[in-house]
Design a protein around this nucleic acid. Structure first.
Length: 799
RNA sequence: GGGCAAGUGGUGGAAUGGCAUACACGACAGACUUAAAAUCUGUUGGCCGCAAGGUCGUAAGGGUUCGACUCCCUUCUUGCCCACCA
């Protein structure tokens, strides 16, 4: 028979709710711990990824509670977004009703897992109490010029008359009707995150506890790149074309330059030339192409000659000016110098269009002496050749010297470019936060006054997934009076990207019901920063970058007094089945709910933590879950066999386990912590255990399997919840053994073992070891060459 | 193309310079049982050997070291992220 997990789990879930066991209150006399897991999109059902993420968080939270911290562990819902619109269309309901129904269902599922959330702090981003503050924050950014409007290209489906997210472009076509997706210019709202690029980059160095991988990804995304803008002059003109390069050392090998099709100088360059028509046709073709298609990696580089020439300022050579689709207007200066000998892309382009090559860097091994017969670009280091006064220099050295020389002669300037772009937040969708702006024919762009917030999302809107922004069709919403001149005006009908909502929710959790501002200064002073943040690697870039950006913005407004929101970050690994990511489309989902039904939430929690360390992939194994369940039953049965006088060895085992498990907890090594507790359980079977030893075992298990342990704790006679007790301490004296067993190696290979007093002297040990018959036979009568003794570790003899 | 991880028994994994394979799953055997399940107790990296023991062994190759799964170099493979970024 197994323990009655169903009754026990229900009993304690009710008990925790009734006693508000996880209610967190500000208390300056106690040390706080803010533990946060990335809040979910309310799809209705939790999946194994959620179970893993939230179990890791729950265990850490309960451990910190036992350690005596004042723990805040909140939960909420990232409730705006397109899936609700799609589901509403499909199920003929409203996004509002559908979302709230899903939230209810998801709360129930989370409670069934026994997670220790403070439900009093719950927030949903789709509630006007929350999104009001999105609008408020947006207006503060608008006032400072950090929220601004500009025309930009979007993916456009001319058949559905709607914009498409990049994910909705499938093989260059609309996901719904397969019409070829085009690029269309629309006026869109942006946030000027680029204003914070230096701080976002520099402050990464403060985030010592973040995974290297995430730091590297953020670093790449921000993409600081140092190089030189070189000023090419247009032939027979005073016009200057700056080109950006990180390889100034190759400037003498530039045999042509290439402009982006959108480059403002292009039209002027080609005017009246025989090439004008064909160039314009090419530009038309490229510009219309959606960005998704244009930047697809397998596309061949295409380009045309403009008929114009420019002058290379270092040697006054004439070089042809080309236009090609692989040069992007948004990066650098929208123009590049091409050095086919030392850049692979330029090399391929030059081959295709029969453009000349010139070697300027010679590898030191002499394997390459001229550009003829070159099969691919040489991108390695070497010595400068064909480079005027810089010949003979190492190219790395030359790179610096050439840059300085060009600045001197005013033909170039050192320049830093960034990959980071401003953040497009406009969405032509219904289910999101309305952007609080009014367009007045007289006053122009007018901010909605704070006192009129929130701008509420109308409950009804004709959203069909086609035909542009749904809010634009709601007359009562669109038609307003201008707050300034009281004349007729119209509202902005775009909504905000949902990443906006999630960029500050961790601050709202500190004071979720606060009415005067997005968050209460006193509360954030106490609770922030988030001590431990846990979530999926898929948010390594955007969500974390945006949250860091918002935090720095609040810091500038003096709304917070720190510059980074998340001290520690743990990115949990994915849950796999048969080596593949669990997903609906693959049809390899294991439903947590049915696992809870068969084995209980505690067994599920235990398995998912035991099967792999939190930050690596986890392979689902049904038999592993059964194993976890069997282990719990094994622990359960100890209570029937408690003995008054167990073998004293059990006490040493207990204290060893306390030490190991405490250490492992601190490093999030839950799998080895559980292994340690299994060993202690095995020892209890072999050596017997008394009530005290058993209690401590239960106490250490409680963060993993809380219902199970609360029940045993009560059976053991304790009157209060197990989580009101302290984490056990180990006695170092109990860990010391009189005699220890030392391995003896001969030439690094284990050959024998010897039992000696733990604090034995080297001389005494040597005597004993050399007398060992096995050692003697290996020595063969000769004295050892070397005798290495690592106290309390091992002995190694070299013969 | 760039970046970051990782590669250990039949399987998930442990050990981050000092006894390779902890813990678990699976398999095999024994006890209990009329029997099965459950439970308890053992055995379980390969090869040679009746055994004692020997020998090989952490993707491949090299190096550092008394000693390497662990550090360094080269190569291969897999996963993730970024990418016409000049």
């Amino acid at each position: 028979m197994h323990y009655d997990f169903k009754a026990i789990e229900e009993k304690w879930q009710k008990n925790w709710l009734k006693n508000q066991s996880f209610r967190a209150q500000m208390d300056p006399s106690r040390k706080k711990y803010y533990l946060l897991e990335m809040f979910p999109y309310p799809s209705g059902k939790i999946h194994m990824g959620h179970v893993r993420n939230y179990t890791i968080g729950d265990v850490a939270s309960r451990f910190k509670t036992l350690q005596g911290y004042n723990v805040m562990h909140p939960m909420g819902f990232d409730a705006f977004g397109q899936p609700a619109e799609n589901a509403a269309i499909k199920n003929k309901t409203k996004p509002d009703l559908w979302t709230h129904k899903c939230i209810k269902e998801m709360e129930t599922e989370l409670k069934k897992m026994g997670f220790s959330y403070d439900w009093e702090r719950e927030v949903s981003t789709c509630d006007s109490d929350y999104y009001k503050w999105n609008q408020w924050i947006f207006l503060r950014m608008f006032e400072r010029g950090l929220a601004y409007k500009k025309a930009s290209g979007v993916n456009w489906c001319s058949s559905c008359q709607t914009t498409l997210a990049n994910e909705e472009v499938v093989d260059g076509g609309c996901w719904r009707c397969h019409t070829k997706v085009k690029q269309k210019d629309l006026e869109q709202w942006y946030l000027k995150i680029t204003e914070y690029k230096e701080r976002l980059l520099e402050d990464l160095s403060q985030l010592q506890e973040w995974p290297q991988r995430v730091l590297a990804m953020q670093n790449n995304w921000i993409g600081k790149s140092s190089g030189v803008d070189i000023y090419f002059r247009l032939k027979d003109s005073d016009k200057i074309i700056p080109v950006f390069t990180t390889r100034a050392d190759t400037i003498f090998g530039a045999t042509y330059i290439v402009l982006a099709p959108e480059h403002p100088l292009v039209k002027e360059l080609i005017k009246g030339r025989p090439q004008e028509k064909s160039v314009l046709a090419f530009i038309d073709k490229v510009v219309q192409e959606s960005k998704v298609v244009r930047t697809a990696s397998d596309v061949k580089k295409e380009g045309v000659f403009t008929g114009a020439f420019a002058i290379n300022p270092v040697n006054n050579e004439e070089v042809p000016i080309w236009i090609a689709d692989y040069v992007l207007m948004e990066y650098g200066s929208g123009a590049i110098m091409a050095v086919p000998t030392h850049d692979q892309r330029d090399f391929l382009f030059a081959q295709e269009h029969k453009l000349p090559l010139r070697l300027v860097i010679m590898p030191k091994d002499g394997s390459l002496r001229s550009a003829s017969g070159l099969k691919e670009a040489y991108e390695g280091q070497g010595v400068q050749v064909n480079s005027g006064e810089f010949n003979g220099l190492n190219n790395l050295e030359a790179k610096e010297k050439i840059a300085a020389w060009m600045e001197d002669k005013r033909i170039g300037k050192r320049q830093t470019h960034w990959r980071l772009r401003d953040w497009l937040i406009s969405r032509q969708r219904y289910w999101g936060t309305p952007i609080p702006i009014i367009y007045c024919p007289k006053c122009g762009l007018v901010a909605v006054p704070d006192k009129d917030l929130p701008v509420k999302l109308p409950t009804e809107a004709p959203f069909t997934g086609e035909g542009g922004s749904p809010l634009a069709k709601v007359k009562e919403f669109v038609n307003v009076t201008c707050p300034k001149c009281k004349g007729a005006a119209r509202r902005e009908t775009d909504t905000m990207a949902t990443f906006f909502d999630s960029s500050w929710y961790f601050l709202r959790f500190c004071s979720p019901k606060f009415k005067e501002a997005p968050f209460d200064l006193q509360e954030t002073k106490y609770w922030m920063v988030v001590d431990q943040y846990i979530g999926g690697i898929e948010h390594a870039i955007l969500h974390l970058l945006y949250s860091r950006f918002f935090t720095k913005f609040f810091q500038d407004l003096k709304m917070v007094d720190f510059n980074e929101p998340f001290k520690n970050l743990l990115t949990q690994g994915m849950v796999l089945k048969d080596g593949e990511v669990m997903s609906k489309s693959r049809g390899n989902i294991v439903d947590p709910d049915s696992m809870i039904k068969d084995y209980g939430a505690d067994a599920l929690r235990l398995f998912i933590l035991f099967a792999a360390p939190p930050d690596t992939e986890l392979e689902w194994d049904q038999r592993g879950l059964e194993g976890a369940f069997k282990f719990l039953n094994r622990v359960w049965r100890i209570q029937d066999n408690l003995s008054e006088k167990p073998d004293p060895g059990i006490y040493r085992a207990l204290h060893k386990t306390i030490k190991k498990v405490s250490q492992d907890f601190g490093e999030f090594k839950f799998n080895t912590a559980i292994a340690g507790l299994m060993e202690l359980t095995n020892a209890a079977y072999q050596l017997g255990a008394d009530r005290r030893v058993f209690s401590q075992l239960v106490l250490m298990l409680s963060p993993f399997v809380p219902h199970f342990c609360e029940e045993l704790w009560e059976i053991l006679g304790y009157k209060e919840s197990i989580f009101k007790f302290g984490w056990p301490q180990y006695d170092p004296n109990l860990l010391l053994e009189e005699n220890i067993e030392l391995p003896i190696q001969i030439n690094g290979k284990l050959r024998s073992k010897i039992e000696v007093p733990r604090d034995i002297s080297e001389d005494k040990l040597k005597e004993l070891v050399l007398a060992d018959p096995k050692v003697a036979s290996w020595l063969g009568g000769k004295p050892p060459k070397k005798f290495i003794f690592v106290p309390q570790k091992l002995v190694n003899i070299v013969v």
